[in-house]
C-alpha cells in the first residue's frame, strides 16, 4: 500500500500533474475564503465589548500564528518521511514549507505587536508565548541557513530534516505556554474540544480567514514545489517533453 503510494502518487511526475489540476480550485476557494473573511471581519463583525474595533487585528494575527505552527508541523512530518522513506517529493515539501512558514511566523509577530501596543500597552514582552514564537522564527531561519550552507543534496536534506524534527518540540510549548505559565498573552480562544469564547458573528470571519490562510499556503506550496520538481527532474524525458 505504502509502496504504491510512494511510487505512484508521490512520484515527482504524477505529483506534478495532479497538483497542476488541483491548483486552480485551491486558488479559487482561497480567494473566496479570504474575500469573505476580510469583508466580514472589517465591515460586518460587531466591535468588541472591551477592545472596540481594535480586535479586528485578530483576523490577521490568529490565522498567521495558526498557519506558522501548522506549516511547521507539515514540515516536520515531511522531514520524518524524508529521513525514513527517502521520498523526493517529501524533501521538496519540507524545504519549500520552511520558506513560506517563516513569513507566517514573522507576520504573527508583527501583527501581534501591533495589537499588543494599543491593548496591553507594549509592543513586546518576554513572556512564554511571545518568546516561544520568536524561537519558532529562529528555527525556521536556522533551517533555511543550514540548507544554504550544505551543497550536497543528500547531506543537506538529512541534516535539515533532523533540525526540523528537533524543533517540533517547540510546537506543544507554544500551544501550552499560556496555560503552563503566567503570561501577558491571553489563553487560547479556539480549541477543538471547548466551546469557543468568541461570539458567532465574530467567529465565522475568523474561521474563514484561517481557512483562507491555510489554502494560500497550499497554493504557494504546490506552486513552488512544482518549480523544484522541474528543476530536480530536469534531465528526465517527461520534463524535456513538457518544456518543448
Amino acid at each position: 500500500m505504502f509502496n504504491w503510494l510512494t511510487q505512484y502518487w508521490l512520484s515527482p511526475k504524477s505529483f506534478y500533474h495532479a497538483s497542476g489540476r488541483l491548483l486552480p480550485w485551491l486558488a479559487f476557494v482561497c480567494l473566496l475564503a479570504l474575500g469573505y473573511g476580510s469583508i466580514a471581519g472589517l465591515f460586518f463583525a460587531p466591535a468588541d465589548y472591551q477592545q472596540g474595533d481594535g480586535f479586528r487585528i485578530m483576523y490577521v494575527h490568529v490565522p498567521s500564528a495558526f498557519a506558522a505552527m501548522a506549516v511547521y508541523f507539515l514540515m516536520a512530518v515531511s522531514a520524518l518521511i524524508t529521513l525514513v522513506w527517502r521520498v523526493k517529493v517529501a524533501a521538496i515539501c519540507m524545504s519549500v514549507s520552511a520558506r513560506i512558514g517563516v513569513w507566517f511566523t514573522l507576520l504573527a509577530l508583527i501583527t501581534g505587536s501591533l495589537w499588543g501596543k494599543p491593548m496591553w500597552g507594549t509592543y513586546w514582552v518576554w513572556d512564554a508565548r511571545l518568546t516561544s514564537v520568536l524561537i519558532l522564527l529562529f528555527l525556521y531561519l536556522g533551517f533555511i541557513a543550514l540548507q544554504s550552507v550544505i551543497t550536497d543534496i543528500q547531506a543537506r536534506e538529512r541534516a535539515s530534516a533532523i533540525l526540523a524534527l528537533i524543533g517540533v518540540i517547540n510546537l506543544p510549548i507554544i500551544h501550552y505556554s499560556v496555560i503552563w505559565w503566567n503570561t501577558l498573552h491571553q489563553g487560547p480562544s479556539l480549541s477543538a474540544f471547548a466551546q469557543p469564547t468568541i461570539a458567532a458573528a465574530m467567529l465565522w470571519p475568523l474561521l474563514a480567514m484561517i481557512t483562507g490562510f491555510l489554502l494560500f499556503f497550499a497554493v504557494i506550496l504546490l506552486w513552488r514545489m512544482r518549480n523544484h520538481i522541474l528543476l530536480r527532474e530536469m534531465r528526465t524525458q517527461w520534463v524535456e517533453a513538457l518544456i518543448k
Binding site: 466591535a47 461570539a199 458573528a201
Partner: peptide, 14 residues
C-alpha cells in the same frame, strides 16, 4: 500593562 482574556463579544451582548 493590561491583560485581556480570550472572550470576544459585541458590546450589546455584553
Amino acid at each position: 500593562l493590561a491583560k485581556h482574556d480570550a472572550k470576544y463579544m459585541p458590546a450589546s451582548v455584553a
